[in-house]
Amino acid sequence: MVLFAVITWQVVVEGPLFAADVALGRALFGAGPTAVAELFADLGNTAVALPVAAAAVGYVLVRDRRQWPAALAAVAMMAAVPALVVPLKLLVARPAPLEPGSTGWYPSGHTATAMVAYGTAALLVTPYLRRRWAMPVAVVLTAATGIGLVLRGYHWPLDVVGSLCLFGAVLPFFSASDRRRSSSRTRTG
């Protein structure tokens, strides 16, 4: 959370980190294959990420209805994304990378959506899997989203990093509460 506060401060006051961010962003915009970068950026769209989270919630409830608190916590985490991101976007009012006059780009809502949707989905389904592949996949999907957003020029790099820091501080609370409930789901023997 401290890192998020420092990044936010630098963006607001246009400090040295802000200047480096703008230079890095300008160097990265348009780099890489456009179609792949666009696909990666789209992973953070609610139309893509929310069905993944909803499927995980449904799967867990079908497997064990007693896991409704974990499912409800995942839904609450998804609801927290716009509840936290939208006011911050309005407060910071950071200009868009490639759209002059447009503001409200910090922190990245697409990155936050990807991180929370894929992260909570992974945490929900992992106890039911034989191998622990869900969280690495969630990390890759979230990282790909951030990379795509920057390469396409939809966000500055610090917009993405800020979201990762903000929800990287919030997601462990879900993880900790999910672990406390997981003892009833853990296989024995």
Rank of each mutant, 00 (worst) to 15 (best):
M1Y: 08
F4I: 07
A5L: 13
V11N: 03
L17I: 11
V22S: 07
V22M: 11
A27S: 15
A27I: 12
P33K: 15
A35C: 10
V36W: 12
A37N: 02
F40Y: 06
L43A: 03
T46L: 14
A47V: 13
V48W: 02
A49K: 04
P51N: 08
A56H: 04
V57C: 07
V60L: 09
R63N: 04
R65S: 11
W68P: 00
A71I: 08
L72Y: 00
A80M: 10
P82M: 03
A83G: 08
V85D: 01
P87S: 03
P100S: 01
P107V: 04
S108H: 07
H110D: 05
H110N: 08
T111E: 09
T111V: 10
T113D: 02
T113G: 06
V116Y: 00
V116D: 06
T120V: 12
A122Y: 06
R130G: 15
M135V: 14
P136C: 05
P136D: 05
V137N: 01
T142Y: 03
T142A: 06
T142M: 04
A143P: 09
V161A: 01
L166A: 07
L166I: 07
G168T: 02
P172M: 04
F173G: 14
S175E: 15
R179T: 11
R181H: 11
S183A: 15
R185V: 14
T186F: 12
T188V: 15
